[in-house]
Amino acid sequence: LGLPKMEVFQEYYGLPPPPGAIGPFLRLNPGDIVELTKAEAEQNWWEGRNTSTNEIGWFPCNRVKPY
């Protein structure tokens, strides 16, 4: 089972920042694999864990694709 995984195809370094105070941003590099921890199809921002860095944070969902 486990959490859904997504592959990063466009880098994200915190700009634009996540809206409001939902949480810290998650740095993404192309090729990184992100395990989704909070993701809803109608939301533009998802939370996940970058398996390369083990960091957890928020990122724009348009930077990832199904793994």
Results as ranks from 00 to 15, higher is better:
Thr37Lys: 11
Tyr12Thr: 01
Gly2Lys: 11
Glu47Pro: 02
Ile22Met: 15
Pro30Lys: 15
Val64Thr: 05
Lys65Asp: 06
Val34Ser: 01
Leu36Ala: 06
Ile56Gln: 08
Leu28Gln: 00
Tyr13Gly: 11
Gly2Leu: 11
Asn62Trp: 04
Leu15Lys: 14
Asn54Gly: 14
Gly57Pro: 02
Leu3Arg: 08
Gly31Gln: 09
Asn44Gln: 13
Val64Leu: 11
Asn62His: 14
Pro18Gln: 01
Arg63Val: 13
Val64Ile: 06
Arg27Asp: 07
Pro18Gly: 02
Pro66Lys: 07
Trp58Asn: 00
Asn44Gly: 14
Asn44Val: 11
Ile33His: 09
Cys61Met: 07
Val64Glu: 00
Pro16Trp: 00
Phe9Arg: 08
Leu3Val: 13
Lys38Thr: 13
Leu3Glu: 10
Leu28Asn: 01
Asn62Lys: 13
Leu28Met: 13
Glu47Lys: 08
Ala21Phe: 06
Met6Cys: 04
Glu35Met: 08
Leu26His: 00
Leu3Asn: 09
Asn54Ala: 11
Trp58Gly: 01
Pro19Asn: 04
Glu47Leu: 12
Gly57Phe: 01
Leu28Thr: 00
Trp58Phe: 03
Glu7Asn: 04
Gly57Asp: 00
Gly57Arg: 00
Glu7Ser: 06
Glu42Arg: 11
Pro4Lys: 15
Tyr13Thr: 12
Lys38Ile: 07
Asn44Phe: 15
Trp45Arg: 02
Pro19Lys: 05
Glu47Asp: 00
Leu36Cys: 14
Gly48Phe: 04
Asn54Val: 02
Leu26Lys: 00
Ala41Asp: 14
Lys5Gln: 14
Phe9Met: 12
Glu40Gln: 10
Glu40Arg: 12
Gly57Tyr: 03
Asn62Cys: 08
Asn50Pro: 00
Asn54Arg: 08
Lys38Tyr: 11
Pro17Val: 11
Pro24Ser: 11
Pro18Arg: 00
Gly14Lys: 00
Leu1Arg: 15
Met6Trp: 07
Glu47Ala: 08
Glu47Cys: 14
Ala21Met: 03
Pro16Gln: 02
Gly20Asn: 06
Arg27Phe: 05
Tyr67Cys: 15
Leu3Lys: 10
Asn50Val: 04
Leu3Ile: 11
Phe59Glu: 04
Pro19Leu: 04
Ser52Asn: 10
Gly23Ala: 06
Arg63Met: 11
Glu7Trp: 07
Phe25Pro: 15
Ile33Phe: 12
Arg49Phe: 05
Leu15Ile: 08
Lys5Tyr: 09
Gly2Trp: 11
Val8Thr: 06
Gly2Tyr: 15
Thr51Glu: 13
Arg49Ser: 04
Ile56His: 11
Arg63Pro: 01
Leu28Ser: 03
Ile33Gln: 10
Gly2Val: 12
Pro30Trp: 06
Asn44His: 14
Trp45Phe: 14
Tyr13Ser: 13
Glu11Cys: 08
Lys38Glu: 11
Lys5His: 10
Glu40Gly: 12
Pro4Glu: 14
Leu28Pro: 02
Phe25Asn: 04
Trp45Glu: 01
Trp46Ser: 07
Ala39Glu: 14
Pro19Cys: 04
Glu55Cys: 09
Glu35Arg: 04
Glu7Cys: 05
Asn62Leu: 05
Gly20Thr: 09
Gly20His: 12
Thr37Asp: 04
Leu26Asp: 01
Glu47Asn: 06
Pro30Thr: 12
Gly48Trp: 02
Thr37Ile: 14
Ser52His: 05
Lys38Asn: 08
Arg49Trp: 06
Leu1Cys: 15
Glu55Leu: 09
Pro19Trp: 02
Gly57Glu: 00
Leu3Gln: 05
Phe25Leu: 08
